[in-house]
């Protein structure tokens, strides 16, 4: 998880209007992310670089004018394979994160608002999940339901739910203590109304920020799982599958790692930078004064 310990101090004063938008760097990161997703989606639809499964020439050819990223051990062009891999990875992790967001938000706001036994139950459940190292948890899931896309998706959810639930619960608990929530209770509002209209809207920023972090964790988990051969199965490709296959020929054909490696780093970096920007915008620290 990309937790940043240092954040630039900003004086929040009378002219708060300048803080409405996220900073330039984060916008660039978002653009990079959108570009990756677009290339993956449009590239697969348009058959960019040819058929990923087709054997087009010699094995392990270095990058050249014909095969921009070279060919793999079976003689398949790497460009369409990387495009397909990015697409699979992004789709898998973002669907998993949507599931995580829904689950964590529900658990988090109910636990944070109700407190007491509900809170304890949710926290202990989260602690149990948290106790497993993420890759061990993923291996366990793959062993139970069999390797494949579903295993990868379920693993990502199980790894990210505890992370996100904790943060959302803490945010909800602090919102729940605010006077407007008490005022709503005094007015006789029922719990669902309070959860939806007062708690949920005020933790939505936290959910969005945690979602970006969960996405990067998801990509890593998918990569790790496929690398171990427990996630997406060949001949289908994902970033993890490609890195695993590239690793085998790392000495003879290092370029096999170039495409998937660069894309993975770019994706992780832009997600985390964007997440930080989003956090600064949506959850600004309390205004600091000189005293």
């Amino acid at each position: 998880m990309g937790t940043r310990t240092w954040s630039p101090r900003r004086r929040t004063g009378a002219g708060g209007a300048g803080r409405r938008r996220i900073d330039l760097l984060s916008r660039a990161a978002l653009a990079c992310l959108v570009a990756l997703a677009a290339v993956a989606a449009l590239g697969q639809a348009a058959g960019l670089g040819g058929d990923p499964a087709e054997i087009v020439g010699g094995r392990l050819l270095p990058p050249g004018p014909e095969w921009w990223l070279g060919t793999d051990s079976l003689g398949r062009s790497m460009v369409p394979r990387v495009i397909e891999g990015v697409g699979t990875t992004l789709l898998l992790s973002s669907s998993a994160v949507l599931v995580t967001a829904a689950l964590s938000t529900l658990l988090g706001i109910v636990a944070g608002y109700r407190g007491g036994a509900v809170n304890e139950a949710v926290l202990r459940l989260v602690d149990v999940l948290y106790a497993f190292p993420s890759i061990v948890l993923a291996v366990l899931v793959a062993a139970v339901i069999g390797p494949g896309r579903t295993a990868a998706l379920a693993s990502i959810v199980l790894v990210t739910v505890p992370l996100m639930t904790r943060v959302v619960r803490a945010a909800a608990a602090s919102v729940a203590r605010r006077d407007y929530v008490t005022a709503a209770v005094i007015s006789g509002a029922r719990t669902p109304r309070i959860l939806l209209r007062h708690i949920l809207v005020n933790v939505s920023g936290t959910v969005a920020v945690q979602g970006t972090y969960a996405l990067s964790v998801g990509i890593l988990v998918e990569g790790g799982l496929s690398f171990l051969g427990l996630g997406v199965q060949p001949p289908e490709s994902s970033l993890g599958v490609l890195i695993q296959q590239g690793g085998v020929y790392m000495v003879a054909a290092p370029w096999l790692l170039l495409g998937p490696g660069v894309v993975l780093v770019a994706a992780m970096l832009s997600i985390n930078v964007f997440g930080d920007g989003l956090r600064d915008r949506l959850e600004p620290r309390e205004s600091r004064s000189l005293t």
Binding site: D179, Y180, A183, A189, R197, N202
Partner: peptide, 27 residues
Amino acid sequence: QAVLQHPQWSLNPRMRVGTSIAEPLAV
């Protein structure tokens, strides 16, 4: 009804003032 202490936390920041005022009626 009640009027509570902290002006900065007495109103839901994501709700228009009118909606906040009307909430006890809506309830």
